[in-house]
Amino acid sequence: MIGVQGEDFDVGLQYQQLANNPRAGAIVFFVGTVRDMTDGQHVTELFLEHYPQMTETVLAQVVAQASEQWELIDVHLIHRVGKLSVNEQIVFVGVSAKHRKNAFAAAAYIMDQLKTCAPFWKKETRQGQSIWLEQRDSDVSAASQWFDH
């Protein structure tokens, strides 16, 4: 299940849906939220822009790659767009697999690809100023490690 939406999501409901499968022995999920501070400056609001048609294509590709590589049973990926306040949920990545190693690896892989391939852009409001976030080198190296071997 892949969703790109303005509205919030219910983590408990997502977990229940992933867990409701007798073949699943491991469920791993990650939730990203809006931080209140960047580079020592207070953040009051986050705006998320995306490229709708491409987002759909890229997310489907990432989920398909992960599902095949780690033999996943199910994947739930939800990414929010639009205006968000501090502490709000941004992203949910949840996977179910037979065993934990595959589930941990697949969830980490999907998040790393989200940070570097999916066409989303964050703009923060800090002390009244709107600033587009720059991509972090650490995100790029985290994503590339999956292809180093």
Binding site: Q53, K115, F120, E134
Partner: peptide, 12 residues
Amino acid sequence: DELAFFPPVTGG
């Protein structure tokens, strides 16, 4: 074709 230009992505 549809061609798009954009800065490095910052989602997730």
